[in-house]
Design a protein around this nucleic acid. Sequence first.
DNA 1: CAAAATATCCCACAAAAGTGCCATTTACAA
DNA 2: TTGTAAATGGCACTTTTGTGGGATATTTTG
Lengths: 207, 207
Amino acid sequence: MINVSIYEDNQRLSDLLMLLLENTEGFQVVGIHTDCTLVVNDMEKEVPDVIVMDIDMPNSNGIEGVLAVKKVKPAVKVLMHTVFNDERLFECLRHGADGYILKKDSSTMLVAAIRDLMNGGAPMSPEIATLVLKAFRQPTTNEYHLTEREKEILELLTHGNSYKMIAAECFISTDTVRRHLQNIYLKLQVQSAPEAVAKALRERLVK
Amino acid sequence: MINVSIYEDNQRLSDLLMLLLENTEGFQVVGIHTDCTLVVNDMEKEVPDVIVMDIDMPNSNGIEGVLAVKKVKPAVKVLMHTVFNDERLFECLRHGADGYILKKDSSTMLVAAIRDLMNGGAPMSPEIATLVLKAFRQPTTNEYHLTEREKEILELLTHGNSYKMIAAECFISTDTVRRHLQNIYLKLQVQSAPEAVAKALRERLVK
DNA sequence: CAAAATATCCCACAAAAGTGCCATTTACAA
DNA sequence: TTGTAAATGGCACTTTTGTGGGATATTTTG
């Protein structure tokens, strides 16, 4: 028996969800809530296996909700169930949401998603999966024409090495390191080591 | 009609894949190859809609393959089809792979995945989806007990600001910036600005 | 309330980084 | 072959950082 707790401010929708789950073999709704303010207390009482969570809710929204849940009970699965929203998607994922499906998806999809969650899966609507994979793509536009040696030295810099340490690592003089970095800064259009590190890491020029 | 090109060094498996696809309504296999060395040329000739690509291949492997494909024809969908491999997964995704399914998955899954791809989806095996979502999680272990002000100043540093610029931005003296950074370095256990920036960005202490 | 944490500022000094200008060697391409 | 790009090294000089010492005001907290 899978215990499900629902967080959804739309009364009609939450009623519908409960009806659906209560009438599905192996599911049991242990709680329905209209916002996340008491989510930690709720969990203590209801002991859900899975929480189905909307994002847009008054007072305490789903983003705070998933954060709170994962902080105290990381084992409880949280399935985001929401209309589309670009920005908040990744915030939820960073906070540890275990799945993300859209409200427009069918109810069978929801049931399948919860089952998938309990089996250790990570259910996502196709639109979400696409966005998630896109987030991994490396923009190929950043071409600064760094030479191999320059990339190597930049990478050492982004690992916190000083000029002296880089020199030792590469078996060259600190003056040469200085010169390489001068060229690197020119190519990256930056003025300092921290700025170069920031640019290199943000634009994934190095590992 | 969906045109599929296959890259797979295991002869038996590629034969099987072809048999499967050729006998599925709406699919057509336009090429079979045992490595990626000529992938760009192959594409010119065969004009596939989807490429099913193994990772482990002699000579030119699937990681180089997906990179090459996406460089010249980003519209061609690339579906990684491979045994499990932690490290290479994210490399493929960075290079722009559109889907990632495991060889142990069923053949119906493969066919569904290709259809999904053509509809703009991003098919993934459950194991892969789980790993991908995990990659987004913010490790909550990094607690360096930075104060709000310290976080603010660290963030400014990771955006390439010098002590002087941070001072101007925060309406404080450079000496105070210096003092804050001294405390930050102590808490992060680093010795320099580049190192702090690297740590902050790698461990996502700042945006 | 007293103690601790936080944020602010100052000074001094050494170490490191950034800039400019110059030079040599190697390798590869026009 | 002549030039260009790349990697190497040196020196001088200024600016910036990093570290240590000190101090004060405010806020938070036990």
